[in-house]
């Protein structure tokens, strides 16, 4: 058996009369991973998981989940995955217990009482099992969505923006719970636009923007790779119109109408940058150094391009 949970190749989606939501995306997630798709709203994260769950038809490409190609057997994939959607929606006629009993039935499970109880206890919903879904608070509905996705014991749990609009306390409760599920062996794919969430939960992540994967790798090494980069801001006595030719080969930016020059440093060029600055006729009155966080990297990879 291969150790690949999700294998996506050349996945493209163009909505009717719409823009390209996914543009030739490749992605591989291993069994047992806790993986994040990180990106701003409208980046294509939901499109990607909605194709996996069957809500959206792909334009072309291949989706393989636990070795089954979606085109060969979409139903098998539906048995293997559990999806926690972004939008909260329940059948208003049913109670919590009934919602989960019907959900079990759809997966061919006749008697799932014990497991339903176990999941409800774990998600702290057991007191509400006979309550109608309309009587639940927002946070309880969110937890019921997770219960619903877990009730057939899927091998891959997909969480679409699980903590959007959720208070801090519930966010941490949910994090603890899904972390436990992952430690017990469940493969989890999470989409989020909160960097903090991806950092807290996932060992690997992909940064998605405008239908493309901009970067993929270990969360830690992505942070290390980019946090090695620093920026130095030089406050200048005289306003600068253009970057001196000595500094042309470095990544520079003129700010504040020319009174600040910002240069990006990485460990390999720091020394050269200082020498190059010394060789210019710039009159530096002050300077400051800032480290780039993954947040900056994320913003750089995504939002800035939207402005262009």
């Amino acid at each position: 058996m291969s150790d690949i949970a999700v294998n996506i190749k050349n996945l493209t989606k163009r909505y009717k009369d719409g823009p390209l939501a996914l543009d030739d995306v490749d992605l591989e997630i291993k069994k047992g991973e806790f993986f994040a798709l990180l990106g701003p709203n409208g980046a294509g994260k939901s499109t990607m998981i909605n194709i996996m769950s069957g809500l959206v038809k792909k334009t072309h490409g291949d989706v393989e989940i636990f070795g089954t190609n979606q085109e060969d057997d979409p139903t098998k994939i539906k048995f293997d995955i559990g999806v926690v959607p972004q939008e909260i929606s329940f059948d208003p006629f049913l109670t919590v217990q009934q919602t989960l009993e019907f959900q079990s039935g759809y997966y061919g499970i006749r008697d799932n009482k014990e497991y339903i109880e176990e999941v409800l206890v774990n998600l702290n919903l057991i007191d509400k099992k006979d309550a109608g879904t309309r009587q639940l608070s927002g946070g309880m509905k969110r937890r019921l969505l997770i219960a619903k996705a877990l009730i057939h014991k899927p091998k891959l749990l997909i969480l679409d923006e699980p903590t959007a609009g959720v208070d801090v306390e519930l966010r941490h409760t949910l994090w603890t719970y899904v972390r436990k599920l992952n430690e017990a062996g469940l493969t989890i794919l999470l989409t989020t636009h909160y960097l903090e969430e991806a950092e807290a939960l996932c060992k690997r992540l992909a940064i998605v923007d405008k239908g493309k994967i901009k970067a993929v790798g270990k969360t830690k090494s992505l942070i290390e790779e980019y946090s090695g980069k620093k920026t130095i801001s030089l406050n200048l006595k005289e306003k600068l119109k253009e970057v001196p030719s000595e500094l042309n080969k470095y990544e520079t930016q003129i700010l504040e109408n020319g009174s600040i020059l910002e240069i990006t440093l990485d460990p390999s060029n720091t020394e050269h940058v200082f020498k190059a600055v010394g060789a210019t006729s710039l009159d530096v009155t002050n300077f400051s150094v800032a480290e780039q966080s993954l947040e900056d990297v994320f913003l750089k990879l995504t939002y800035e391009q939207h402005e262009k």
């Binding site: 069957g54 539906k78 048995f79 329940f90 759809y106 061919g108």
Partner: peptide, 14 residues
């Protein structure tokens, strides 16, 4: 209307 229609697509029924 309730947005539960998506359930029809995600449950494992042909």
């Amino acid at each position: 209307y309730n947005q539960t229609i998506s359930d029809l697509l995600t449950i494992p029924l042909r």
